[in-house]
Nucleic acid binder design. Structure first.
Lengths: 345, 345
DNA sequence: GTGAAAGCGCTAACAA
DNA sequence: TTGTTAGCGCTTTCAC
């Protein structure tokens, strides 16, 4: 690899005929003013020498890392970035960070893994802040969160909240409200036997959606019937078999609210295979609004999650001088979800 | 935030009654030997003080960043991490890196964006190596690659290759061979009118799949018929309309090879809507083997891409002392894809 | 096997 | 407005 001599601030200073301090001032546009003349000479020297400041030296001195850590906590290593949720959030988050000249450092953290290495990173001074993505609700995440909070970095938790005792800023979305809206929509259409395709209950999001469903049923004066809840582990083929089971019931459902679009599509496939038409025989609502949703026949009615907004808010909370360490924890951000009415219900 | 006094190596040294040099030796398990007694004293002091070494000071001194950069080059900022390709690759890549105590720093690089900030990062000394993910073929990427190579870091390009002049290590998969295998499979089944649902031709992968398709047709002695190629921009609803168009042809196809599973699913939906059965009336093969593929009715025959293996290989090339900077560029790694026969063809 | 000390390249306090 | 210089916390050379 190229072994060209390392160009340092000192070289630039010499060439421009100024001190290293001035080079620093020009580079950082402060903290002290510089004359136009000097600025130009320094800039030219930087150009000519193709100088690039050393990030470690800068970080060591200034205690600013220009880096945010992303802790992705999920059930196993090969799932940490696996969901389309994360892709969408990361796109928005990294874009927002880059605008402010910050980078994102990925830290996959499979549930159950030794936390020591993460602790080392958090204490290494290499991070200005942390975004934590968890899939469980407290108290399951208390250990992890306690460690992160103890590291003393500005932190934001996204998707699920942490125990309030930690005073962590959070950006979540309203799972239960989404499930509630979906179910109410079905009730509003006159359905009385409404099934729920349940997600993997290890995921808090699945629990919340189940809860929203029950709530809406109760409010609608409908009976809660366990046999109408098809348990899955987010697995589409389970949705297929559960749907088939529902169809066998003595009093089968006329509508299905699925905890994810994947599950909804599974139900749709099953219904189609069984010769039922959607939404005439059975109505379907999904959750997530994945790109595929609008492409199905019929296009899927579903609940849209503002994923990009989650990423943007997380960035803002960490970078905004107003939202960051300075101010006390503001009220948790809970983003609204949106019912997207299409053809399936 | 907690303003506890910063614990440094010096504090540990004092408490353990040794010099800072020895603390360093213990911490790094070298480069010079230490006595068992000393090692224990130092370890205890580290524990008691809850000491964590400063990453920047370490990096500044040792010139090892323990960080790999990931440059994600795609058409717009909100797509850089958007594909399921990247999710799967990142899962494997970050897991492999972490095993060797390395982190991944994300750098989204929308096509057409100013390269200066990236150059700054590459020259900042904060990275030990770079993984570059591109979606175009040379010479479109020459500018970007030239800059990365000039930075002098060990680098690996994944998914698409770079111009050979750069001597960059690469981990790609065989798009054309996959398309070829898919098409040949259809020919082998007796199909003579085989359509191709083309992807977004701005993406090299779409071009390569198209090329593999043409190649197989030619080898099979079949005529190349432009009217059998349905152009899309990876957009499933375009696959729907193009399929409908194909059905209107005087001599319609009996099989469709789609450049992605998404497109294949679109074709499947369209066929279903038009009352044709798959694979009896029209056979379908996709590309990617997304999780959904096996859940469709009928399950999709498709081409599987070894995404996790791409991530693992990239990590190995960067971290292995044998594969990294030391050795000359080895032959490019081109991973084989696999035809997964299921129900749709 | 260990200690002392010289920097790595930068920022910012102190002087001017 | 600018120069001088003391570190930031660590690794590693030189000395013992």
């Amino acid at each position: 690899m190229s072994e060209r001599k390392r160009i340092t601030q000192r070289d630039v200073a010499e060439r421009a005929g100024v001190s290293t301090a001035v080079v620093s001032y020009v580079l950082n546009n402060g903290p002290r003013p510089t004359s136009l003349d000097v600025r130009e000479r320094v800039s030219r020297a930087i150009q000519e020498l193709d100088y690039h400041p050393n990030g470690f030296a800068r970080g060591l001195r200034s205690r600013r890392a220009h880096t945010i850590g992303f802790v992705a906590n999920d059930y196993n290593a090969l799932d940490c970035f696996g969901s389309h949720y994360l892709s969408a959030i990361l796109d928005a988050l990294t874009a927002a960070l880059k605008q402010q000249d910050n980078y994102l450092l990925m830290y996959p953290m499979p549930i159950g893994e030794d936390p020591e290495p993460l602790k080392r990173l958090l204490r290494s001074g290499r991070l200005d802040g942390v975004v934590v993505r968890v899939v469980q609700d407290p108290p399951a995440t208390d250990g992890l969160i306690a460690m992160i909070v103890k590291a003393g970095l500005p932190s934001v938790i996204i998707e699920r909240p942490a125990s309030t005792q930690f005073g962590l800023r959070s950006v979540t979305y309203d799972d239960a409200a989404g499930a509630h809206a979906a179910t109410r929509h079905l009730i509003g259409q006159g359905h009385r036997r409404i099934a729920h395709m349940v997600g993997d209950l290890r995921y808090a999001t699945a629990q919340a959606r189940l809860e929203g469903y029950r709530q809406a049923l109760t409010e609608g004066g409908l009976e809660i019937d366990e046999s109408l809840m098809g348990r899955t582990t987010w697995n589409m083929s389970q949705a297929v078999s559960e749907t088939l089971r529902l169809l066998e019931l003595r009093d089968p459902p006329t509508a299905i609210f699925a905890a994810s679009d994947d599950l909804a599509i599974g139900a749709l496939e099953a219904l189609r295979a069984a010769g039922r038409s959607v939404p005439e025989d059975v109505a379907i609502i999904g959750f997530d609004d994945i790109p595929l949703a609008q492409e199905m026949t019929p296009p899927l009615t579903t609940i849209r999650i503002p994923l990009a907004e989650i990423g943007r808010r997380a960035a803002a909370l960490l970078l905004d001088p107003i939202g960051a360490a300075n101010t006390p924890v503001t009220t948790p951000v809970v983003l609204p979800v949106e019912l997207i009415k299409r053809g399936s219900a």
